[in-house]
Amino acid sequence: MVQEKLRSDLAILPIGTAIKLTGLTARQIRYYEANDLIKVARSQSKQRLFSLDDLQQLMEIKALMNTEHNLEQVRQLLARSKGTVVHSDSQLRHTLQDEILLASPFNRNSANYPSTFKGQN
């Protein structure tokens, strides 16, 4: 008989169970969801459903928030632990501006680019 692997990504637990297992309040969980720290599955009737992976992530968020981290720091730390990169709006704008300048005929390395504009953003 082949033993089935436990599916920790299967969202089947209601918010009441998540509250009991994590020690968080419903308000905290909704706040973390509203601030995109966690993505929660929904049933057809729009009820929040949590997986074991979701509960683990909620516990990580709780631990980070208890160590005086703010939302943005928690978001960065969670992204880093998942191996994804999160950039702020200003970082994205700066990167986009650099890419546009490099692609334009007036890029910073061009001899025709006026020296008075070099280094200005």
Rank of each mutant, 00 (worst) to 15 (best):
E4V: 07
D9Q: 05
D9Y: 06
L10H: 02
L13Q: 01
L13S: 05
L13D: 01
I19E: 10
K20P: 01
L21M: 01
L21V: 00
L21A: 07
G23S: 02
G23F: 01
L24H: 03
A26N: 10
R27K: 15
Q28K: 07
Q28N: 07
R30M: 11
R30E: 13
K39E: 11
K39L: 10
V40R: 09
R42K: 15
Q44P: 10
Q44S: 15
Q47P: 00
R48A: 03
L49H: 04
L49C: 06
F50M: 01
F50Y: 08
S51Q: 02
S51P: 01
D53Q: 13
Q56T: 02
Q56L: 01
E60Y: 02
K62Q: 14
A63R: 07
M65W: 04
N66I: 01
E68K: 12
H69C: 14
Q73G: 11
Q73D: 11
V74C: 09
V74E: 07
R75E: 08
L77I: 12
L78M: 12
A79P: 03
R80G: 03
R80E: 14
S81Y: 05
G83Q: 09
T84M: 09
V85T: 11
V85C: 05
L92E: 13
R93E: 11
H94G: 06
L96A: 12
L96Q: 11
Q97K: 14
L101W: 09
L102D: 15
A103I: 07
S104Y: 05
R108Y: 05
S115M: 13
T116Q: 13
